[in-house]
Design a protein around this nucleic acid. Structure first.
Lengths: 218, 218
DNA sequence: AAAATTCCGTTGCAGGCGCAACGAAATTTG
DNA sequence: CAAATTTCGTTGCGCCTGCAACGGAATTTT
């Protein structure tokens, strides 16, 4: 129950909204919390997304079923994460992705129209909500642009170096990365073993040094 | 002068705003039109983007200067396009990109804070503006996601087929694409000649047929 | 219409990289 | 602590693909 409000406090969408107002605001928005059991769908491909979802408990998967029947995992969602916001804002008629529970959990669903069109009793925080939504979408845009530039590099070497340099630009020449090898390979969209090979080369050539997931640019 | 309002009519940001109201609205927003001569910067890397820009005349370039001094072209902007909206919405302190004029032209600059915080005299269309902005950012998000999935494919064959299939899903089994070969190679982030080779193979194996930029899935 | 320029397909080459398989190290489980 | 499982580095193989160069086709320029 109050693990909910705890989670809610860390949700980007509500940044800047005092906890005291939050419950009333959610009421005003017509928020519903729904218990979802494992493998149950919160959003099915083909449907129209009418709600913005926020994960409160459990783990959820965003998947896309390809033309050839392959199911690819696009993202995993943890408490505090939300989903379907882009689909709602862009008013996409048929969602290309599905969202389902990887384990029993709960989500909060916010009717998008209520987010968009402020209710009659002017909740003072409504504009804040829209502002946050704009910031969230825009931030994701910028992240995506970075990743696309990364993926446009044509060699593993350039992809890795570009990634490491971008992290270094924020954290300094020595830093740890939030990825395991396999996850890093996924992120760079390259083969894991080929990534290991290239990292070894970069180390041998004296460009970088690393141990586990701690890296150092030389 | 009225080529301006003509262009403005096709700007996504103002969709649903009647032309009659547009001029007053722009006034209310504090819009300024600025003449820019070739090679002049509208936004310099490192600066904070305070305005959303709309191209009225000319051609503008979005570029990023890499660590190693390389300048890469991220996008070209034509009349009706706009820029810096993500940077504004995400409140990025230092723009990673620059925008400059490829030829003499004019841009309209909208102070972002005026877009965000409605002016005292309630312009009825203000919420429409925010709604449009949300839709624009969200649509870009979805486009980017698609492109990222594309770029995550590990062979030219899979990238091309995925691209062609996504176009076919919208236009049918026979369709034309809006790219020249070189542009398509750029979009897929592969070598042009390698792309031609793979296309030839796909045709030889009977998977596709094409002539110029008209394609057909078999 | 000729010349020039751009666009595009083709090809040889060499290195890059995906793939599979294996083994060591690390972590988890019992 | 031993066994089991996962993670990660290594390596051989062979295809893929970037690169460069060339020539033809198409388009533009004069």
């Amino acid at each position: 129950m109050d693990s909910y409000t705890e989670v809610m406090g860390s949700v980007e969408l509500f940044r800047g909204v005092e906890a005291a107002h939050l419950r009333a605001m959610l009421q005003c928005l017509g928020a519903k919390t729904v218990a979802v059991s494992k493998d149950q769908y919160v959003l099915a491909a083909g449907d129209k997304a009418e709600h913005v979802g926020i994960v409160l408990e459990g783990r959820f998967l965003v998947v896309r079923d390809d033309i050839d029947g392959e199911r690819s995992l696009l993202a995993t969602l943890s408490p505090g994460d939300f989903f379907a916001e882009a689909l709602c804002c862009a008013a996409v008629a048929e969602s290309p992705v599905s969202v389902l529970a990887d384990a029993d959990g709960t989500v909060m669903l916010l009717p998008f129209q209520r987010i968009l069109h402020t209710c009659t009793s002017a909740c003072g925080h409504h504009s804040r909500l829209l502002e946050n939504m704009l910031a969230i979408l825009a931030s994701k845009n910028l992240l995506f642009q970075d990743r696309m530039e990364l993926l446009s590099q044509k060699s593993i070497r350039r992809r890795v170096m570009r990634y490491l340099e971008s992290v270094a630009a924020q954290k300094g020449r020595e830093f740890s990365i939030p990825f395991s090898r396999e996850e890093l390979a996924d992120f760079l969209a390259v083969d894991r073993s080929a990534l290991s090979r290239e990292l070894a080369r970069l180390k041998a050539e004296g460009h970088i040094d690393y141990w586990k997931n701690v890296f150092k640019l030389l």
